[in-house]
Amino acid sequence: MHKSALVLLFFIAGILLMVLTAVDAAVQQDSAMESLGRRTLLVKELGLSDIALFTEARYTRHPSLADRHAAFQDHPVSFDHFPSGSLYLPPRQLVQ
């Protein structure tokens, strides 16, 4: 077999696998609907407003409820000292 045929096969396999990721995503989205529904219900029942990704500080746990002084909460010039503060930008309504 020519080396070019091997390359062609490799690319076809790669493209098929990439298509498969799209199929896999669609299948997983379908099967996740139930658990997404459960999460949505919990959000509705408890009136939650934020995701619990960063639990280290008030303004990273609930960024949408943070005030303008969030990063300087302890003192007017005490800069944000939590690492996750650098991953988030402040909520858009505060910087507009």
């Binding site: 997404l36 999460r39 949505t40 219900l41 959000v43 509705k44 009136g47 939650l48 407003s49 934020d50 995701i51 990704l53 409820l65 005030d67 303008r68 002084h69």
Partner: peptide, 26 residues
Amino acid sequence: ALRKEASIILQQSPEIIVQRLVAGRH
């Protein structure tokens, strides 16, 4: 994926949250 998931589940978050502010703080 995280953004998409947050946008789906937070569709059911409260329509309006009313906070009281004193000296600019909650």
